[in-house]
Amino acid sequence: MPILQKSQADRSATFAFWAFVTPALLGLTVFTLVPIVWGFLLSLSHAQNTIHPGHFIGFRNYADLLTDEAFLKSLVTIFVFALFIVPLTFAVSLGLALLVNKIGWGRSFFRTVFFIPSAVSYVVASLIWKVSLFNGLPFGFVNHIIGLFGAHPVAWIGTAHPPWYWLVLVTVRLWLQVGFFMIIFLAGLQEIPKSLYEAAAVDGAPSGWPVLRYITLPQLKATSVSVLLLNLIAAFQAFDEFYNILGGSGASIGNASLARPPLVYLYSLALSNQDFGRGAAGGFILTALIFAVTLLQGRIFGFGGSEK
């Protein structure tokens, strides 16, 4: 009875397939697909103090947001932020990976040390940056250090000229995410065949910059593109450090107005102001934007194309 046995095996394989896939599929449907569809319907509704779509107003929420100075300014803010943070994270994490990869002893120690900040919550790190490191009083950590050189205490957060708050925002994210991207680069570095370096040495290539320029960096192309991509998407989704260092709506709104990324603006629009229609529309606009930038980046760096 081999046929029967086979179909029994098939059935049990099918059963196993559904047994494993169903929970994930259910989760995906309940927590991702339904909210996306619901959110889209909300974005077409006048949903003030309600999360029930129904009072449909077409694309007015989208039109309102795209003519809203504050929302447009938030898009500019996030582009500027990405312009700072993405190249900086890329350079620092690549540099750290090269250094850690180079040392013979203590590699796993340094790898762990640099990775640990990735495990810290953005909220906690933001509060440490705000209250302890970049506190505006003379006894704040940074003010104390610059005080040793005779400088006056600086109000790091809350003044526009010069905009020191960018230093606070960029350094906290740098500290938090560099370790993670360093690990990705390290994995990439370890994938590069030793034979390439040996061949280069045999051919008499001087070690150092030429090897880095002509072997290491080209071999890291796929890794670099994914680091850039992840980094850019994370930058566009920035919320925690802005919300916790500068503030959302309310208490310190005068600081929040200085640099408000789109997610903070949409959060205050949807949750403080309870306008879920415009909040949802903003979410879709932002998604479209991230999508477009990612495609553009892929076009420029050739991500997803066939390996040459």
Binding site: A70, A160, G250, I253, G254, L258, Y265, L269, N273, D275
Partner: peptide
């Protein structure tokens, strides 16, 4: 609060 945000942006 949306009016509050608009005014606060101007005042900032």
């Amino acid at each position: 609060s949306a009016m509050g945000t608009a005014l606060a942006d101007a005042v900032t």
